[in-house]
Design a binder for these strands. Structure first.
Lengths: 238, 238
DNA sequence: TAAAAGCAAGAGCAGTGCTCTCGTTGTTGG
DNA sequence: CCAACAACGAGAGCACTGCTCTTGCTTTTA
């Protein structure tokens, strides 16, 4: 792809990586609010002003960390999906496995999770560079449901009239292999999955949910049902 | 309850309110990260050091704003619930009306929403003072489902064995009027409701969901179904 | 009415993001 | 080969932050 041209370019790559590593370390230790350029420079033994040769601002550094975090959680989801596919696991299992992979990543990297799925901290709109990596988890979920649809079909109610136009646009834009009835429920399930994880990570479940693992598993299974990955449930009036 | 004893106490109450008002103004304008004690003091025409007589630290000021925000969104949800009850609206409508009230509040106060449902910004665990106000929205949802259960019953599948102990604890702890089958789904629906809202507020739906209102309504209705507020849906394999 | 407590203001400390300048050091075209 | 150039690191400095301490003043209390 791109050959390294000389000592200078090589050094630049290494220093950039070292800055990001140290910044990630401080992010994991103290959170995004406490991340300080001067502290990073201090830890690396360089003047703080020198750091601006590599990142033009603190927000740019944070954006780089955001991109890396999106890639990290996306890679986790993709790896879980690959493994489940290699095992020829049923589609419902692929769904829960991917969901658990995202949750496990969040539990292992709470501050990085907060950076990407918590309050947006830099400018109001996400920089262009983040939108690619940000969609990786979503694409995995689309793939899981798409494969289930193609092999087993989906047990879904018909599409509501009010959602017809929106569903058509969604299918055309980022899910061409999916039937229209499932796109809106899938996007909803996507956001609801992160709702479950965010409430756990951000402490909203403190004193509310104790058995978090089994609670999450049941909720995620129910989410799969709304996508037609399982048959309709039996229910009774009580 | 507590009578105001003199001019000094009266002044203290007024100044405290003025500080919070100005802080809320800056919060709404720029977000929690940019909220500065010195700027608040400047705007109020007082020395920054004087402000510490009223709030011992910036985090304490933020905590006060957090409590107010929880109360504000809680009051919105309660008002919506009261109105729907006064109209003798069906339970499914009460559910969606409360959900929309929370969403409307979030859209009107995005920075305050981020403060309470985004990344926790002060210390890691929420101060004791916040846990009461923080549960108001949840209590409204519990009330909606409880009333539906008592009048119409709920169309729910039996409780999974793995959740038996957890559901029993939850019922005993904060939902004594609810049947055990609905507590876990209700907590899940609670977090998923905020997942939907957070993704919209935090920009995760940019370039993904366009018809946000109708999308939200459909998703919230589907959530109600997982709580047995509607009959089981008709579905077909496609 | 005198002591005590609450209060506002100013100076100051340590820290931050960021800019500018000034030597130094690699890169590169003539 | 070496001169011009671009990239680089370091230091000083600006404007800002949260927070503390001291110094006077005012209100409350004994």
């Amino acid at each position: 792809m791109s050959a390294i041209r000389g000592a200078r370019e090589r050094a630049r790559i290494e220093v950039t990586a070292a800055i990001k590593d140290e910044a990630r370390k401080q992010l994991a230790a103290e959170g995004a609010a406490k991340l300080s350029l001067r502290a990073v420079a201090r830890e690396l033994g360089m003047a703080s002003s020198a750091l601006y040769r590599y990142f033009p601002s603190r927000d740019e550094l944070l954006t780089a960390l955001i991109v890396d975090a999106y890639d990290s959680v996306g890679e986790s989801a993709e790896a879980a999906h690959r493994a489940a596919r290699a095992d020829a696991a049923p589609h419902i299992t692929r769904w829960t496995v991917v969901a658990h992979a995202v949750r496990d990543w969040a539990l292992a990297h709470p501050h990085e999770y907060a950076l990407i799925y918590g309050s947006p901290v830099p400018g109001y709109s996400a920089p262009q560079a983040t939108i690619g990596p940000a969609s990786r988890v979503g694409l995995v979920l689309i793939a899981v449901v798409g494969e289930a649809y193609r092999t087993d079909g989906l047990a879904l109610p018909p599409l509501a009239d009010e959602l017809r136009a929106e569903a058509g646009r969604m299918v055309a834009e980022f899910a061409p292999d999916l039937p229209q009835e499932v796109v809106a429920p899938l996007i909803a399930a996507w956001s609801q999955l992160f709702g479950l994880i965010s409430f756990e990570i951000f402490g909203q479940f403190n004193r509310v949910v104790e058995a978090r693992e089994v609670f999450f598993r049941e909720a995620v299974t129910e989410l799969a049902r709304t996508l037609g990955l399982l048959g309709p449930r039996s229910s009774r009036r009580g």
